[in-house]
Write a protein that binds this DNA or RNA. Sequence first.
DNA 1: ATTATATATGAATAATTGTTCATATATTCA
DNA 2: TGAATATATGAACAATTATTCATATATAAT
Lengths: 119, 119
Amino acid sequence: MQKESCAHNHAHEAVVARAKEEILLPSDVEKVCKIFQLLSDPSRLKIVLALLNGELCVYHLTEVCEGTQSAVSHQLRILRDNHIVKSRRQGKFVEYSIADNHVRGIIEMGVQHLQCAEH
Amino acid sequence: MQKESCAHNHAHEAVVARAKEEILLPSDVEKVCKIFQLLSDPSRLKIVLALLNGELCVYHLTEVCEGTQSAVSHQLRILRDNHIVKSRRQGKFVEYSIADNHVRGIIEMGVQHLQCAEH
DNA sequence: ATTATATATGAATAATTGTTCATATATTCA
DNA sequence: TGAATATATGAACAATTATTCATATATAAT
């Protein structure tokens, strides 16, 4: 209930102070959240998963992800704006590929989590 | 624009077929998304970050995360329901701790992403 | 028992966001 | 140049979700 008054000093403020030190800076928390948020939508994750195996154009991505062209394009924009993917025009087509190699590691960790018996 | 008709067979359907094989099962995509979604909110990420250094009670978490008691409790419920954290009552207090060790790896990858020069 | 402290939770609200529909832009081909 | 294909994007809509406020429950202390 309270937020300021500390009637409660079991294990003292030291616990809080230490925990606060070890945590990330607020701005860093936001940034780490952002990368997770980008991968937390099925449409976007499918796009990124597909691109982990190599460059694909929008039409192929639309097929692979079983979405509409518009929806895929909108999500590609978000991924591109956030430097997860990059694009290059190849004549008639626009080919997309992974721009940030860290995403592979992050996703692998997510998959590892999934494959465990704990659930 | 189209979704069915394939006027476009540059690099053939084989590309799509192969990409679809390499991607995860739809249910697995959902599950991987879920773990990212859980870590994609600043309040929840702060909670998890704090708990990575050891068990903390709700009051301490409230202080560390600089949120209200209610908001922290709501987020703890979500994290507990999804087996990211677990709780045990210790007399007057309820102590929370990390239930799923995979989150450490996932977050470390997220932080690694952050620390890179690319942005 | 009564009071105070610690945590949990339901309902309401506000904000964010993913999709769809329509349309615009860009490139190729006839 | 004009038609067709490929991609992008704005606006509207629906759904999800994080927070707040009020209150309920649980434990401890007096």
